[in-house]
Design a protein around this nucleic acid. Structure first.
Length: 437
RNA sequence: GUGGAUGUAGCUCAGGGGUUAGAGCACUGGAUUGUGGUUCCAGGGGUCGUGGGUUCAAAUCCCAUCUUCCACCCCA
């Protein structure tokens, strides 16, 4: 838990530095708010909550006899657990539109749930740390998100790479090859390029009903190599007949030109095969991967032009990213990058010799805590050996041994657990020595 | 949703129809009545995931069920 807080604290500190406001929303949402936002797969992965009361009585025999799960679950369940933080946030924004002044910058650190089969790097419940700006079209927001990613992973001491793409460019590609309606199938397939290879991607596209001509036209996009600038220039030519594609390229170019104004250490790569599964993205899309551990993406996001529209507030554009705290945890653990300080432990422990001695220690303890020193008294008068082992296991660097003799002299026997060295000190000497050590 | 594993001591795992189920680590006590990490000695702890079946006999074989894990799909 203290390790998880280490992640949250670092992320939160960056969010606050960039002036985002914290909010929280309930774990439950109406299913109608959730369904259809995450694609067909996403709908299947929603946890549904059984209605209270005698829900079965209201179902007619016909619905039962047809045994259609999707219809029945709609009758049994009206609520579900949130699948991400972005959609509930959009709902929140619409409901509180009168209290919010736009553009609204918020962050949110809460768990989300997916009814998936858990496996490595994939959990049924996991924490997301979202930052979003809603009510602003400026690509300056995209830049800030990249800066946030850069700072967070620098604080966490992790090497990552940011991949950037734009849904409009993908739409442009779909348009140019003559299948704008197949954009989702196309993006899902090409997203797998570096995983399954060119051939299998083409095979999958053919299965989705793309003709050979269209697949051939797609190949130059899949194979495109070079620097970000080279790719952009090449794309300009390929997409010159697509209005939306050209718009996407303009946006990408703008973000890259903003990036030149500031110092960002994380590499930002234009990746035309980056698609991301969520349906609601319309502009920039981001994905962050660890370059040290193979675990899928540890942060991702993008721009959504009309997420609030479905809740009754049209024409409000937002952009945001989400850090996957649990995957970041796995990466830190695997690389052994959690600092010692992420384990909260006291600096000094008082040995408990019995009621009388403990009473004296309680008073000294109060003085240490007053001075801001994290300290504790072993609560029971257990055997010395047990108390020392406890301090040792918890890696407490100092132990105070205060028995009858010490109390008489009004001193404290301070033992350095690393060197084994002991010295008798007065309480203020003890405090100053602990502060300076 | 599809396919494959797994479940034995607090933890990591061995065993594989036949007396009393094992190891390492952890824990407790002692060598050391106020001194941890190393060492040595001793000890406690298990309805062998749950329910059923086969058998003279089941932790072991069979069936079902649940858990956890892995791959696919998809994703943070």
């Amino acid at each position: 838990m203290s390790r998880r807080n280490y992640i949250f604290d670092n992320i939160r500190s960056v969010f606050q530095k960039y002036a985002f406001q914290p909010i929280e929303t309930p774990a439950m949402e109406n299913l109608s708010s959730l369904l259809g936002k995450y694609g067909d797969e996403g709908d299947k992965l929603l946890f549904r909550i059984l209605n209270s009361g005698d829900f079965a009585a209201k179902i007619d025999e016909k619905a039962y006899s047809e045994k259609d799960s999707s219809i029945l679950s709609g009758l049994f369940c009206e609520k579900g657990l949130r699948y991400d933080l972005t959609v509930p946030f959009a709902r929140f924004v619409v409901q509180n539109r009168n209290e919010i002044s736009f553009p609204f910058k918020r962050y949110q650190i809460q768990p989300v749930w997916r009814a998936d089969r858990p496996q490595r790097g994939r959990y049924r419940e996991f924490y997301q740390c979202d930052v979003d700006v809603i009510g602003s079209n400026s690509l300056f927001n995209e830049l800030e998100l990249i800066q946030i990613i850069d700072e967070v992973f620098e604080l966490l001491n992790l090497k990552v790479a940011i991949k950037l793409n734009n849904r409009k460019v993908l739409a442009g590609i779909a348009e140019i090859i003559g299948h704008p309606e197949k954009i989702i199938d196309i993006t899902v397939a090409i997203d797998k390029l570096d995983k399954i290879g060119q051939e299998k991607v083409n095979q999958e596209l053919a299965e989705k009903g793309l003709d050979k001509g269209a697949i051939d036209k797609l190949q130059p996009f899949l194979l495109m190599k070079g620097s970000n600038e080279e790719k952009l220039n090449l794309m300009r030519k390929h997409l010159s007949n697509s209005e939306v594609g050209t718009k996407g390229l303009d946006e990408l170019q703008k973000v890259f030109s903003y990036l030149n104004l500031v110092e960002v250490n994380v590499p930002v790569e234009l990746d035309l095969t980056l698609a991301r599964g969520l349906n609601y993205y319309t502009g920039a899309i981001f994905e962050v991967k660890s370059t040290e551990v193979e675990i899928g993406s540890i942060c991702g996001g993008g721009r959504y032009d009309d997420l609030t529209g479905i809740f009754g507030l049209p024409d409000v554009s937002g952009v945001g990213i989400s850090f996957g705290a649990d995957r970041i945890y796995d990466v830190l653990l695997q690389l052994n990058r959690f600092p010692e300080s992420a384990r909260i432990s006291s600096k000094i422990m008082f040995v408990n010799f019995g009621e009388k001695e403990a009473e004296y220690c309680i008073q000294q303890l109060a003085k240490l805590r007053e001075a801001g020193i994290s300290s504790e008294l072993y609560p029971d008068s257990a055997k010395m050996k047990k108390q020392m082992s406890y301090a040792d296991n918890k890696k407490i660097p100092f132990v105070a041994i205060v028995g009858e003799n010490e109390i008489q002299q009004e001193k404290i026997n301070l033992k350095n657990m690393e060197t084994g060295e002991q010295k008798l000190l007065k309480i203020d000497e003890l405090i100053s020595s602990l502060i300076s050590s």
